[in-house]
Design a protein around this nucleic acid. Structure first.
Length: 197
DNA sequence: CTAACGATTCGCT
DNA sequence: GCGAATCGTTAGT
């Protein structure tokens, strides 16, 4: 049970990290409420040579600029005007890679998550999806650019290494042509906490 | 300044 | 299964 150091996000390829993050614990302490979940589903986005990435072709905009920072920062953006999607920036400065966290298994602060999601029962819909997990954990654009060892937002290695990991294509990236076929989505096979099979 | 759209979700059929 | 919701970001005028 230890906080993952920022160096972890800087020394490996984004696809390796996306897979390796499965089983790690994502924690927030926002509005005085501590919430944690085990990462069960991720996707890798690579700045160089991946048309699905916001930083494809070295594109730089006000929204994606944090992707060009050192690994270990958070990249949060609003999707469809409604959903906050949480990403983990990886690689060194000016290599704009990131991992999208798509689902978690709630383990701590479940009452708070239910309240934020306006639900009464714990089920898959609580946090299996990139928009819903952000809402459950209280993550929004105010957390854009935070380092992942901050008081509000961090990851822990709990020594859990999932046995069976599925690798498949990413969701909602049809616009990326051939790159939509890359097997850069990962999830824990036995987990119910997955957005889509 | 303005129009078009998105790494989604939810409710209704 | 399908379509609406909803608004910041983006690129083009």
């Amino acid at each position: 049970m230890s906080i993952i150091p920022l160096s972890y996000y800087r020394q490996s390829d984004v696809v390796f990290i996306a897979r390796d993050l499965l089983g790690k614990k994502l924690c927030t302490q926002i509005d005085g409420e501590k919430c944690c979940g085990i990462i069960t589903e991720t996707e890798a986005y690579r700045g160089w040579g991946d048309k699905a990435c916001h930083a494809s072709g070295n594109r730089r905009t006000e929204r994606n600029k944090v992707m060009y920072e050192d690994g270990g920062h958070s990249y949060v953006y609003l999707c469809y005007g409604i959903h906050h999607l949480f990403n983990i920036v990886t690689n060194v400065q000016n290599e704009a890679d990131a991992v999208l966290v798509r689902a978690i298994e709630p383990v701590e602060g479940i009452e708070t998550m239910l309240k934020r999601r306006n639900k009464s029962k714990v089920d898959k819909s609580l946090s299996s999806g990139p928009g819903t997990l952000s809402q459950a954990l209280g993550i929004d654009r105010s957390h854009y650019g935070l380092p992942l060892n901050s008081e509000e937002l961090w990851l822990e290695d709990i020594g859990y290494n999932p046995q069976n990991i599925i690798e498949t294509t990413r969701i909602g990236v049809d616009y990326a042509g051939d790159d939509a076929l890359l097997p850069w989505r990962f999830y824990i096979e036995d987990s119910i906490w997955v957005s889509k099979r």
